[in-house]
Design a protein around this nucleic acid. Sequence first.
DNA 1: ACCTGAACACCGTTCAAGT
DNA 2: ACCTGAACACCGTTCAAGT
Lengths: 189, 189
Amino acid sequence: MTQVKPMRADARRNYGRLLEAAAEAFAAQGEGASLDDIAKRAGVGSGTLYRHFPTRQALLEAAYVDRVEALAARADELGEELPPGEALVAWLNELCAGTLQVRGMKALLGSAVTDGGVAAVSCGTRVRDAATRLVGAAQREGTLRADVEPVEVLRLAHGVSTAAELANGDGDCIRRYVSLLTEGLRAGR
Amino acid sequence: MTQVKPMRADARRNYGRLLEAAAEAFAAQGEGASLDDIAKRAGVGSGTLYRHFPTRQALLEAAYVDRVEALAARADELGEELPPGEALVAWLNELCAGTLQVRGMKALLGSAVTDGGVAAVSCGTRVRDAATRLVGAAQREGTLRADVEPVEVLRLAHGVSTAAELANGDGDCIRRYVSLLTEGLRAGR
DNA sequence: ACCTGAACACCGTTCAAGT
DNA sequence: ACCTGAACACCGTTCAAGT
C-alpha cells in the first residue's frame, strides 16, 4: 500500500532532494516560494518537480507530513498527561506556535480545514482526528461547549494564528489569543 | 490639503476609471487580481496605473477608502444607539461580514493592523480610531476585559474572518465565531 | 504634465528529446 | 521509466517615445 512499484534509484534520490529543498524554501519564504527555485536548489529539472508533485499543495503536504504526524501524535500524548480541557488548550498552543514557526505549514493546515477545499488535503484527516479526540473528551468532561465541532476549533485556531501573525514577532500573543479563544469556548461561562 | 495641484482632465478621468475597475476586480478575484487586467479594463496603459498607484497596496486602499470610512462612521452610529458592550459586538459583526463580502478588503484591513507592516496603511488609522472609541467605552462600562488593546481586538476580528472564510459560505459562522470571541473578551467571566 | 505600450525580468507549466 | 531544459504563457514593473 505504501508503494506499488519501487522507485528507480535516481527518482528516489530526486524525490528526497526535492522534499528537503521544499521544506527549507517554504519555511524561509512561506507557501509562495518559487517552485523553479526549489527545483534548482534540489539540482533537478523543473519537469521532475512536476512529475513528483503535480500541484503546489502536493509538495507542501509532502514536505510537512512528518511535522503534521508529530502534531497529531502530540495530541494523544497530551490527552494522556492532562485532564481533557487542559490538554486541548495545551495542544492548541502548540498547534498555533508550530504553525507560525514553520511558515508554509499555516497554509497547509488552513486548506486542511477548508470546507470543500483542495480535495481534502490528505494529512488533514490526521489532524482532524486528533482534534476530534481532544474535543470529544473535553466535551464529555463538561469543560467545553457542546455545540462546537472539532473542525471549527481548528478553524478558530487558524484564525488565532492569523491574528498572532499580525502582531509580527510578539511571541506572547499566541498564548494570550489562544487563552481568549478557549475562554470563549468554555462551557457554562 | 486635499489636492495641491488640480489634475489634468484626462488624468482625473483615468484615475476614476482605474478606481472603478480596481474595486470590481478586487471584489471579484481577491487582492491578487491582475494589475495589467485592471489597467486594460480601465482602458488605460499599465504605466498610468503605476503613476497613480505605485504599489498594489495604494490601489487597494484607494479603491476601498469610502467603504472603510463607512465602517468607521458605522462604529460611531452604533456607539450612540447601543450600550457600549453591545455596540462593540454589533460592530465586529459588521466588520467581519463586510470583510468577507468584499474580497479585497480583508487584505487591506489586515495590513492596517499589522505591527510594522506596509508603512501603516493610512486608512487604517480611521478604523483603529473607531475601534479605540468602542473598546474604551466598553472597558469603562466594565463589560470588556481591561487588558486588551483596540488593535488587538481588530487583529482578533481579522482572525475570526479568516476562520469564517475557511467555512466557505456558511454564513452563520461569522455570528457564531464573533460571539465566541466576545465571550472570551468579556470581563469577569 | 501625462499617457502609451514595448521591453525586460520572473514565474509556472508543458513537452519533445534524451538516457 | 525517468530526467532535462527549452519553450510558452502570464504577470509585474520600468522607461523611452509620444502628445
